[in-house]
């Protein structure tokens, strides 16, 4: 970063929010994002520096993390799984809509989430929507409401497997019994 000046009134607030190590990590991360998007032009930081600071501050305020982070090993195991499931998800929906008769039997199922870390839950909900045949439609009181393109298929098993993958990604051990 070449400049650190921020709008005067919020500077102290931002500074306080950024004291923690995680604030610093976010700052570096968002600065990296800016560098990738805007390229290596020093003048771009006139916009970039305030944007990076505001993004870090917003993220800090909205964060509800309890202490678990994505682990590197978990990430390396998750990426190939996710890429393969994305291919399956895309081809599945393409096949269904390209048939002479649209091949669907939609329905809504409930899935009790066992993940505890809020970030992991959000990650799980977003992943559900990118996997074959499922869409996270609502989330309330620890229950994910999953819309299925074909509710006749067994969806509990794929959802459990996905949740285990996300738990592995965040280094979390799932407690309790899986439940529909």
């Amino acid at each position: 970063m070449t400049t650190t000046e921020a709008p005067a009134p919020s500077a102290s607030v931002i500074a306080r929010r950024l004291v923690s190590l995680h604030g610093l990590t976010r700052l570096v991360l968002f600065a990296g994002f800016w560098l990738v998007f805007a390229g290596n032009d020093p003048q771009s930081w006139i916009i970039g520096a305030p944007a990076v600071l505001l993004a870090s501050w917003t993220a800090e305020r909205l964060s509800r993390r309890r202490g678990r982070d994505v682990t590197l090993g978990g990430l390396l195991r998750y990426i190939p799984f996710f890429l393969w499931e994305s291919i399956l998800g895309g081809t599945d929906v393409a096949k269904r809509v390209m048939r002479p008769e649209v091949d669907i039997a939609p329905g809504l199922i409930e899935y009790k989430i066992r993940l505890t870390e809020p970030g992991a839950r959000v990650f799980f909900l977003d992943s559900i929507s990118l996997l074959p045949g499922t869409l996270s439609a609502d989330y309330r009181d620890g229950i994910a409401y999953v819309h299925a393109l074909d509710a006749d298929e067994d969806l509990l098993d794929p959802l459990r497997r996905l949740e285990l993958r996300v738990a592995d990604l965040f280094g979390e051990r799932l407690g309790g019994e899986p439940d529909a």
Partner: peptide, 14 residues
């Protein structure tokens, strides 16, 4: 709902 299925999954892969 079913339209959201098509948009999220097919476009992400595309």
């Amino acid at each position: 709902f079913t339209r959201l299925h098509a948009l999220t999954k097919a476009d992400n892969l595309g």
